[in-house]
């Protein structure tokens, strides 16, 4: 061993010394000088989670509202807005929970706010009640006719278009424009109040469409096909969309 070191040229020894000093300094700094919370990921993650957990809440959550407000939640529970959280409309209310007298949550009263959900937009699911604010009682605040905690039309909807505007619009431009909804659909009265649970009917027989569209039908002007040969096992509306122009 001793011989080996003696054989090493002096420059190699010098380089080795510099290198070892460097390594030793790094080791000492890392091992003894740097505090553990700077180099232990587990500690850092724990403290990071603490900071995350300690962040302030802005939205108090729906449950807590009922503890003071009795009337509105009770009304809301039976209406169409039962799935809405209070803060969906009234905004972040944690500050109001902490200090009920001084901080009041917002209460949107303008038409604009209801429009976030109820202005017509062709991407919204069909059946979701939508209106065109320019033609639906312009400038009148929504809440004069609709109670936001139990919104329903002031009268039971007379026309299907009240909810199915999208279909109504398409149908108006189609060849079926003059055919009333009730010709093809039977809507039980309860559909108007519980639209999701009581669903209107659709024609379930080919012969229904055949009244106008079968070969030799007495109806003039309607395009006809030989129903015996055309599309045998399908009901017509499985391929043709009767509400649009051309019915594709």
């Amino acid at each position: 061993m001793k011989d080996f070191f003696k054989k090493l040229p002096e420059q190699a020894v010098r380089v080795a010394v510099v290198f070892l000093v460097f390594v030793a300094v790094v080791f000492v700094i890392r091992q003894f000088i740097i505090p553990p919370e700077m180099k232990e990921p587990a500690l850092q993650q724990a403290s990071s989670m603490e900071r995350e957990v300690a962040k302030e809440i802005q939205y108090a959550g729906a449950q807590i509202c009922e503890q003071c407000h009795e009337k509105e939640p009770q009304i809301k529970k039976i209406g169409y807005h039962r799935d809405l959280s209070c803060e969906s409309c009234h905004g972040a209310a944690q500050k109001h929970v902490e200090n009920p007298t001084e901080v009041k949550p917002t209460s949107p009263k303008k038409r604009d706010y209801c429009a976030y959900c109820h202005k017509y937009n062709s991407s919204r699911p069909t059946g979701f009640p939508q209106i065109n604010p320019d033609t639906h009682n312009p400038r009148k605040p929504c809440i004069t006719c609709h109670n936001p905690h139990n919104p329903k039309p002031p009268t039971t909807p007379r026309s299907c278009a009240a909810c199915h505007a999208q279909i109504e619009r398409a149908k108006a431009a189609s060849y079926h424009a003059l055919i009333a909804c009730s010709v093809c659909h039977t809507a039980p009265e309860k559909h108007k109040t519980s639209p999701r649970t009581v669903i209107p009917t659709k024609p379930d027989k080919r012969e229904f469409c055949g009244k106008c569209h079968d070969k030799g039908s007495p109806r003039k002007g309607a395009p006809t096909v030989d129903m015996a040969a055309h599309g045998e096992k399908y009901v017509c509306w499985q391929c043709h969309y009767p509400h649009t122009l051309g019915g594709i």
């Binding site: 040229p9 002096e10 420059q11 010098r14």
Partner: peptide, 18 residues
């Protein structure tokens, strides 16, 4: 040069090899 002083042939040969 890390205060190195050895410029003997042997040392230079070591440099080259390294």
């Amino acid at each position: 040069s890390l205060f190195s002083t050895d410029i003997s042939e042997k040392a230079v040969a070591f440099d080259k090899k390294t």
